[in-house]
Design a protein around this nucleic acid. Structure first.
Length: 599
RNA sequence: CGGGAAGUAGCGCAGUUUGGUUAGCGCGCAGCGUUCGGGACGCUGAGGUCGCGGGUUCAAAUCCCGCCUUCCCGACCA
């Protein structure tokens, strides 16, 4: 491709709405342009990039036995009503009515329903299984907040696959095959993906893994154990039982117990029902920090800090029952999938729970289940916590004496340093981008979509055992760019580079037949050798060409100019290392081909 | 959806506080000339409903009200 004809207007300055490096450089390099928030156009270079990533994905999925299809992006809403996910439609998903004969449709955010219905119409026998289909499609999600250029968008390109099997064991085999394909895909793209255990969320199903790419722009966090290799999304991670919190933290809590007890002995607050429990007026101070500051200012409980507070969070479990979760004040509550925090209506129907002043006492009688993190058991108290009364907190509260816990578990969000649930070693917390997700769905969809079943060898009808798998391709563009750039521009790895060679012809305006002739010949030779070449034949100054070449980031630059040509040589430059070399003009094509083959 | 910031030429910005000729600057774009290996230089030129709508005023980019859009933090995230 000749740059003089390519739609590539590079920008010296990035638009002010581009914050992160990948976004700035992809826009400056004319790879993409924003049309609306979270909606991007791929210009020719950007599309070539996507195609390169697609090529790797296709090769690996094909090698794993998956078959490519193209499912509709437009889904009849009836299909989503069958699967039971229609509740998501309208609110969270873009839906609309089609005129004429009418009907309600949505723009597919994911394709479990359509994929299942598609196979249901074709497969009736175990002899047709196992089957894995995949597609590369544009997906639509009504993201509340698109972010960071291509990293989180409303419309994005995804490679999604669906496996169908006759039994659970076979499903697991298909899953492993796809999981391994994913590992190979990320490896070939030069990405250091970490498969982590994850929650299934609204997808349903059981076993699933997220492929996480550690990155400073990541929106997710996962924990990993350097000792045993355990890795899990923080949403799904649980710390080792019995030992949540470091020894030091427990030690501090112990000190607080003594200090708190002594302080109360001399305090003359209103005595609670139980000896040692003191109620304090804390007007307008919901939340741990505000209460700690108030108690410190008023010298109510000497030495109190967040670790001496008992944090009580009201949740609604998947059955709709109210549950209060207890964790130490310095920890966050882990909200499991399917659970949700109390909303205004919930508080209204549970007058015993006062927002901002929730405490664990007396909840049993109110029909509210109380669960607590293991770490609460390890810190005996007394605690400072909410009084279940507006603008009041209590101190001197003891577990067992003043309140009881229905169930102990891992309810605190995992933090760095927590013990690994498998081996007890300290966990690391890593910021990362979720680049892929694989699920064992089981019968979640096949049990609901009409006809999604097959006869097994014994003639019994059984729903398909399914898996689903997704990789965000457009997100990968952002991730690779984020990982591969310097202050001058992008630095594409060979496998994804839109062009392998950036051939720069440094001819003065009006042309220098020697230079243009040599460049044209090289261009032809490289193309003939199967190398993709971007020829900068524009009538612009050398500085512009060098700067653009560095910005666009093709792995190998070949510079043809009169200076070298006078001695019969051209120059090569590795974009990644900056390493330059001179090669004889006659050998240049051969050298470039060899260099490219090693990318 | 909550909090914050911002919308002036394709991009980056000044001007708005204190209303007052014809709304500027850099880059980019077009033409001519010079230059020619790390974002060259000179001259000429094109390009703007100052986000949109309403209001105040003799007069609005500037003040007031409403709306839209975009970005950042958070919530959400199939």
């Amino acid at each position: 491709m000749r740059m003089s004809r390519l739609l590539v207007r590079t920008l010296r300055e990035a638009p002010s709405d581009a914050e992160v490096a990948s976004h700035r450089l992809l826009v400056r390099g004319a790879y993409v342009r924003r049309l609306a928030s979270g909606v991007y156009t791929y210009l020719p270079l950007g599309l070539r990039l996507v195609r390169q990533i697609e090529r790797v994905v296709r090769e690996e999925l094909d090698a794993a036995g998956a078959q490519e299809v193209l499912l509709p992006a437009l889904h009849p809403i009836e299909l989503w009503q069958q699967s039971g996910r229609a509740a998501l439609v309208g609110d969270a998903l873009p839906a609309f009515q089609v005129r004429g004969r009418g009907g309600d449709f949505l723009l597919g955010p994911t394709h479990e329903e359509v994929a299942t219905a598609t196979v249901a119409a074709e497969v009736d026998s175990y002899k047709q299984l196992p089957l894995t289909i995949y597609q590369i499609q544009t997906k639509f999600r009504d993201e509340a907040r698109p972010r960071f250029g291509l990293l989180r968008t409303r419309e994005f390109i995804m490679a999604d696959a669906y496996s169908f099997d006759i039994g659970k064991a076979q499903m697991a085999e298909s899953y492993v095959a796809m999981y391994e394909a994913y590992v190979r895909i990320f490896a070939r793209l030069g990405l250091d993906a970490v498969p982590v255990e994850a929650e299934a969320g609204a997808m349903g199903g059981d076993v699933n893994h997220e492929f996480m790419l550690p990155s400073v722009v990541g929106e997710d966090h996962f924990v990993s154990c350097g000792s045993c290799g355990y890795a899990a999304n923080v949403e799904a991670a649980v710390a080792g039982a019995g030992a949540t919190g470091g020894g030091g933290v427990n030690g501090e809590a112990g000190a607080n117990v003594e200090a708190g007890a002594n302080g109360e002995a001399g305090a003359n607050g209103e005595a609670g029902a139980n000896a040692g429990v003191v109620t304090h007026s804390t007007p307008g101070r919901p939340g741990i920090d505000a209460v700690v500051a108030y108690f410190r200012d008023q010298s109510l409980v000497p030495g109190l800090d967040a670790t001496g507070m008992l944090k009580c969070i009201a949740l609604v479990d998947p059955d709709g029952a109210a549950v209060v979760v207890l964790v130490p004040g310095d920890r966050e509550v882990r909200v499991p999938a399917g659970w949700r925090p109390f909303d205004d209506d919930d508080f209204a129907s549970h007058p015993g729970l006062v927002r901002g002043y929730i405490g664990p006492m007396g909840l049993k009688g109110a029909g509210v289940r109380v669960v607590a993190d293991h770490s609460v058991a390890r810190r005996p108290g007394p605690w400072v916590t909410g009084a279940n009364r507006a603008d009041h907190h209590v101190s001197g509260v003891q577990a067992g004496r003043d309140f009881s816990v229905d169930e102990w578990g891992s309810w605190a969000a995992v933090a760095a340093g927590d013990p690994c649930p498998r081996c007890g070693g300290p966990l690391d917390l890593v910021r990362a981008v979720e680049a892929g997700h694989t699920f064992q769905l089981g019968l979640t969809y096949s049990s609901k979509i009409e006809g999604a079943k097959a006869l097994d060898a014994e003639g019994n009808e059984t729903p398909y055992w399914m898996g689903c798998y997704g990789i965000g391709l457009s997100r990968l563009v952002a991730v690779v760019a984020e990982a591969c750039h310097d202050d001058k521009g992008l630095i594409w790895p060979g496998v994804v580079a839109p062009f392998q060679v950036h051939l720069i012809a440094l001819a003065p305006s009006g042309g220098d037949p020697t230079v243009t002739g040599a460049a044209e010949r090289l261009y032809g030779d490289l193309a003939a050798a199967g190398v993709s070449v971007l020829l900068d034949d524009r009538d612009v100054s050398a500085g512009v060409k060098f700067a653009d070449a560095d910005l666009l980031g093709m792995p190998l630059q070949v510079i043809v100019g009169h200076r070298g040509l006078g001695r019969g040589v051209v120059e090569t430059k590795q974009r990644a290392t900056g390493e330059r070399a001179e090669v004889a003009l006659d050998a240049a094509a051969e050298v470039a081909v060899a260099a490219v083959s090693q990318l």
